[in-house]
Design a protein around this nucleic acid. Structure first.
Lengths: 136, 136
DNA sequence: GTATCTGCAAATCATTTGCATTCTG
DNA sequence: CAGAATGCAAATGATTTGCAGATAC
């Protein structure tokens, strides 16, 4: 039977509150400030569990280690080719419906059973664009 | 100045021919049969280079290590939640255009500069579906 | 009281790097 | 010959695992 743990609570809570997509290491460092006895293994263990329960999402990054996302609103990710950061892009009801319909249609072409889809947009984010402009 | 290497040639050639999406390790094992002196570091070095040159693509997997893809035709990936394998899904000219247009439109919402997008469909592939049916 | 969860340290897995040697232009 | 590329072994980085002690129910 699943038991309560303060560690799991603050991990989930923190991921829901923050708007970035931290690595396990980053999250660990930040949480260690408010709970110094916290161990990195506990963070990894809980992140894996929370993903399995569908409460958070693991985001694969092109460059560095995996990122974790606690944003509960339906969204897709924009990954910056320069800094590697992720930005959430929110979709309207219509966009979501449209997307899922076309995805489902595509899936039938391989006779596979479609469940959901992940879309990663790639490009340069606002922040890096500004930096690039300044450097030039 | 870039120099020819037999190793790079067989790595690229093999990736273009095969229809799966092997890990570096798998590719290494297979190529070692025809070139026993091949080293794993050489495989990784060349895979990284070939990706940078845009001749192949690195595919991030939900489960295991990175996969590599030498399929030159425009396609997106279907990732099986059970076996972790990838299947290529081909798109028509119209679908590609449509997709890029809607992606570009989404990107403007975050004031980021869109370059290209990656779409991963998720579900259960034909092979696993059959296995599942047999087990039941 | 017992199963679950933790923190730590050690282990594992994937990938990268240093370096002496070999190959290409 | 000079610079590039290789193979090997060692190093690194991220994540997982084993285990003894702490915690929840």
């Amino acid at each position: 039977m699943k038991k309560y743990s303060k560690q799991r609570e603050i991990i989930l809570e923190s991921l829901r509150e923050r708007k970035d997509h931290p690595t396990a290491e980053k999250l660990f460092m930040d949480l260690k400030k408010q709970m110094p006895e916290l161990g990195i293994a506990t963070v990894y263990r809980n992140l894996t569990e929370l993903c399995e329960e569908g409460l958070i999402t693991k985001v694969k990054s092109k460059k560095g280690p995996d990122r974790y996302d606690g944003n509960e609103l339906p969204h897709i990710h924009f990954e910056c080719k320069k800094c590697g950061d992720f930005i959430d892009i929110y979709l309207t009801e219509t966009q979501i419906k449209q997307m899922h319909m076309s995805m489902k249609k595509l899936s039938t072409e391989v006779e596979a059973e479609y469940e959901n889809s992940e879309i990663y947009l790639n490009g340069i984010c606002k922040k890096c664009k500004k930096i690039a402009e300044k450097v030039v």
